[in-house]
């Protein structure tokens, strides 16, 4: 592991008795990076976060956060991180405002500054109308928003988000992801676990895919997509019916695969690594044969496809 990592995990093993939840995991996270830790339920994501945030010690392996060993100097780690846990957490008998204020107080934020941050965060997360409401009066989504906002009351170097969008509506989900992006652009490092691939795709610079306690791949989101996804798909339809294009497309360079129209939508599908190079040639080939293109759609390979491929391969091997 190089020294420019703010999170460095080398051969992490975490076992609960006989059961090994995390099995020899290694990765590093750079400063200012949004690092996605992706995996299906029970893959070992939360256990890894618990080790990184010093809640539980590793069984084996070396883990440092901000250059501090999580086993030897846990308090120094905790003083510089923020954690939104997967499980709901709330001071149930306090109002939303008191929840936020109490968190700021625990983190030594001055009274004046706490007031400012409460104003800002309650506006950002749409909590203005329920500032005086207590825990039992809040909906699940509101409680989740309070949980996230409360953790943003203090300053930190690394923010750990363990499936933070659970229970949030799409609008609030986007607000949170955008705010996290903004914070990362200002230097905050974010460790983000999710099993919702669109979120990871939207937010993360790099990601690791974990399943059954082992890392299956770790790279930039683009590289994960291109390495494990299906490549870029060019989808098009023609005005003419029942045309076979197999021979016509032989001359077009850069096509990886081609499929004849699907019955349901009548569209042709072409897989290519470089769609911008293939598309002009393709249109030219169709035009010279007197065919009329009615629609063209270029679809990037998704992280979800890569994720499913990786985890299903692992499943098949197991």
């Amino acid at each position: 592991m190089t020294s420019d990592y703010v999170i460095s995990v080398d051969g992490l093993v975490r076992a609960y008795g006989e059961k090994v939840a995390v099995d020899g995991v290694s990765f590093g996270v750079r400063k200012g990076e949004i690092f996605g830790f992706l995996g299906p339920n029970g893959a070992g994501k939360t256990t890894t976060i618990k080790v990184l945030t010093t809640l539980i010690p590793p069984t084996h392996g070396k883990v440092t956060v901000l250059s501090y060993d999580v086993t030897d100097e846990p308090l120094k780690v905790r003083r510089r991180i923020g954690v939104v846990q997967q499980q709901p957490s709330l001071e149930m008998f306090m109002t939303v405002e008191q929840n936020l204020d109490s968190s700021g107080f625990l983190w030594d934020i001055s009274k004046e500054e706490r007031k400012k941050r409460i104003r800002f965060l309650s506006e950002l997360f749409g909590l203005g109308d329920c500032l005086k409401s207590k825990g039992p009066e809040l909906s699940i989504g509101q409680r989740r928003r309070v949980q996230v906002a409360r953790e943003l009351m203090h300053d930190m170097d690394i923010l750990f988000l363990d499936e933070p969008t659970l229970g949030l509506d799409p609008q609030m989900r986007r607000t949170l992801l955008d705010y996290v992006k903004k914070c990362a652009s200002e230097g905050l490092t974010v460790f983000f676990t999710t099993h919702i691939m669109e979120e990871a795709e939207y937010l993360c610079d790099r990601a690791a895919v974990i399943d059954h306690g082992k890392i299956l791949a770790c790279d930039t989101v683009e590289k994960l997509r291109s390495r494990f996804g299906t490549g870029t798909i060019i989808e098009f339809t023609l005005a003419e019916k029942e045309v076979s294009l197999k021979s016509a497309l032989m001359s077009v360079k850069g096509i990886n695969a081609f499929s004849e129209p699907q019955e349901e939508d009548g569209s042709f599908k072409i897989s290519a690594d470089d769609p911008s190079g293939v598309l002009p040639e393709l249109l030219h080939a169709l035009f010279t044969r007197g065919l009329h293109v009615t629609s063209v759609n270029v679809k990037e390979s998704s992280l979800e496809e890569a994720f499913l491929k990786l985890t299903s391969e692992r499943e098949a091997k197991a």
């Binding site: 945030t53 010093t54 308090l75 846990q85 709901p88 709330l90 625990l106 983190w107 825990g135």
Partner: peptide, 14 residues
């Protein structure tokens, strides 16, 4: 019960 136990323990406290 309300999730604050772990939340406090990932804070700046022993």
């Amino acid at each position: 019960r309300f999730g604050m136990f772990e939340q406090i323990l990932v804070g700046p406290f022993t």
